[in-house]
Amino acid sequence: MVNAITTENVNVFYGDKQAINNISLNFLKNKVTALIGPSGCGKSTFLRCLNRMNDVIEICRVEGKISINDQDIYKDQIEVEQLREKVGMVFQKPNPFPKSIYDNVAYGPRIHGFTDKKNEMDEIVATALKKAGLFEEVKDRLDDLGTSLSGGQQQRLCIARAIAVKPEVILMDEPCSALDPIATSIIEELITELKESYTIIIVTHSMQQAARVSDKTAFFHLGNLIEEGDTTKIFTKPDNQKTNDYITGRFG
């Protein structure tokens, strides 16, 4: 088993407030890892450390070591833009750009200079849309606005947008919380398909979703990592009492 991302003693501070306490957690390649826990437990904060999205927040400070392919991502040897090319992200609320479906998907490849040729770009866009399971639905209206799609389609467009940059890891921050059950099940199927080619880390509030899609699960509580391990084990016989209370719905 190869680790896609390793983290050691990660501490995150918002100003004086510590949001993450000394977390060390590894993510296996081509597996789905679910981060679960009650609201405000720091799972999204931790996720956003992995592609340095927390850099945007001025008062946020990250300590510890996070490595991708043995490269420390908070050291200068890797530019943050390069990192994000390798580690894509899908957000809680679908956030397609107010541009055409085609331009949404082509934006990443364009800024990273994958190709100048129109037909090659068409190919990249089509492949990404196919992988995201959206191609059949939108192939005749690639010039329509991405924002004109339905919620579920928008989220798949965002996944296609992330895939088009050819990342190794895809971070998903509660990708289904704004979607209806049918759209959610489509995205969940998609996640299962995508793990063939990508390492996926998903933050979710839905225990059922974590149980359905993930291979590994990590339970967070108040900025601490309480327990991690195989999903089946966490959901059937967790070691920690807190984990047990949470998955059985006694708090959170």
Partner: peptide, 27 residues
């Protein structure tokens, strides 16, 4: 301009400059 647009572009590896001129300013 919604922060989600900025985050979306940043997460794709756009530089701050690209985020501003490609997405935020037009909006």
């Amino acid at each position: 301009v919604p922060p989600s647009i900025r985050e979306g572009a940043l997460a794709l590896g756009a530089t701050k400059n690209q985020v501003v001129f490609h997405h935020v300013l037009p909006l």
